[in-house]
Amino acid sequence: MSRIPLDTQYQVETPEGIDLEAALAGPVVRILAYAIDLILRSIVLTVLMIVLFFAGKTGMGLFLVLSFLLEWFYPVLFEVYAGGQTPGKKAMQIAVVNDDLTPICWSPALVRNLLRAADFFPFFYLGGLICMALGSKFQRLGDLAAGSLVIYREPPKAALSLPNRPPRSPQLSLSLEDQVAVIAFTQRHGQLSRARQQELAEILSDVLPCGSDQAVGHLQGIGIWLLGDRGETTSL
């Protein structure tokens, strides 16, 4: 089967040679975001209808105009002025961006939302859903036409507590990925079971200068050192 590892990351390289990365948001989370928006809109429309009901035929006319505006421009305005997030998207921590990961602007926002009519076909957004599920970048038809993407905008995770170990300098050359792995090993000491930590550390027992029974502590020390704690030697 495919040799390129499967993932949902999306990468763009800027002209300056900087790689930008974002996680694409798939159908399930987008359906949930849409459902939240739909509920919000329905509540607003119900309230409007009840209020305008007392204004007779004028009220009904006004209601129709307002409901048209709400249906078509609610997402556009929120996406342009609220950083690509309607309230539903904000609740699900996703956002619309252009496909070069710049903030969405007027014309793509208009195109992707006016083309919801195409995505709606034949009923209940089935066209858009199938397009999203089968496409490589989770884009519905409106997204394809507008050149927009929906990505995750999750808040950064809280810092994890570190084990209490003296920092140790690594005595072998570690590539960047290796350093990240050692740091992850240190940071996730609370998540990984003790046996599993031992198992992981023993993989490196031939490389580490200590015995395999001290390997976990030694690796955690290296991780703390890599995170910047130099212990007593900082004064040097």
């Binding site: 570690l174 590539s175 990925e177 290796d178 990240v180 792995a181 992850a184 090993f185 996730r188 998540q191 990984l192 079971s193 599993r196 992981l200 993989i203 490196l204 031939d206 490389v207």
Partner: peptide
């Protein structure tokens, strides 16, 4: 739970 990403890098390093 099992730190697969860590294991892959550790095996690679070893």
């Amino acid at each position: 739970l099992e730190g697969w990403d860590i294991e892959i890098r550790f095996r690679h390093l070893a």
